[in-house]
């Protein structure tokens, strides 16, 4: 149990002294997961809107499928994206394997089901009167979706936060697609896995605490923003 306590102190020390390696890894973790969550939001929120507002055959089945994919193992996504981006794979020419951009892409794929699914639930929670009013005022489909998303912004932001949480805390995609290259694709979670396998348990705990602190800060910032 001493490890946890010592890890806590070590985390404090690493943060207070702005340890350059830890800072670098932390910033990389943040920027990759932010990039993925921005990319995913741009795709998934409008897509969720379309799914919610259009009636089509197989809609229920699609929603079931999306919800099933919530539990997609991160290593499986990592493996799929690895095979896509590998030089022998269909997107090999982009040269994105073992790069931060490739990791961001992988995490985008990973969090897409959960973000689409939660966007749909969020929009469903908006009172139908608002939709009807917008429609009766002559709103186009996209204007309608935008209006309803605005109404449901709290729930949509919650979806985005959950997506970010899943992205920054996952290790499967980061390891498979990024390769845990020091100074290039090493992020907090892969560093934790590496240090643990090397037996540096206290450093691992410290890095874990740093990851949690980031999530806390982001949550605080967003809850202020949400008012």
């Amino acid at each position: 149990m001493d490890e946890i306590w010592n890890g806590f102190w070590q985390a404090l020390e690493l943060i207070v002294t702005l340890n350059p390696v830890v800072m670098e890894i932390t910033i990389r973790s943040l920027s990759i997961s932010l990039a993925s969550v921005i990319l995913a939001s741009l795709i998934d929120i409008p897509l969720g809107g379309l799914i919610e507002f259009r009636e089509f055959r197989g809609k229920r089945a699609l929603l079931n499928l999306i919800q099933t994919l919530y539990s997609l193992p991160t290593v499986t996504v990592g493996l799929l994206v690895f095979l896509l981006l590998s030089r022998s794979g269909p997107l090999g020419g982009l040269n994105l394997l073992f790069s931060p951009a490739g990791m961001a892409l992988g995490q985008t794929v990973l969090i897409t089901p959960i973000m689409i699914g939660l966007t749909v639930s969020a929009l469903r929670g908006v009172s139908p009167q608002i939709r009807d009013t917008a429609r009766s005022l002559g709103a186009s489909e996209w204007q309608l979706i935008a209006t309803v998303i605005k109404e449901a912004r709290h729930a949509v932001i919650a979806a985005v936060l959950l997506g970010f949480g899943r992205a920054i805390s996952e290790v499967g995609v980061a390891m498979m697609v990024g390769g845990n290259i020091r100074g290039h694709t090493r992020v907090l979670t892969t560093a934790i896995a590496l240090e643990t396998s090397k037996g540096n348990l206290e450093l691992s705990i410290a890095l874990g605490i740093i990851l949690l602190s980031i999530s806390l800060l982001i949550n605080l910032a967003l809850s202020r923003f949400q008012g």
Binding site: S31, A35, I38, L39, L42, L94, N95, L96, F98, S99, P100, A101, G102, A104
Partner: peptide, 22 residues
């Protein structure tokens, strides 16, 4: 700004591939 940031991030990562030995 966010869009530009994402684009810049992806481009810079792709461009950096040249002088690398894997």
């Amino acid at each position: 700004l966010l869009l530009l940031l994402t684009a810049a991030f992806i481009c810079s990562a792709a461009a950096a591939e040249e002088g690398r030995l894997k």
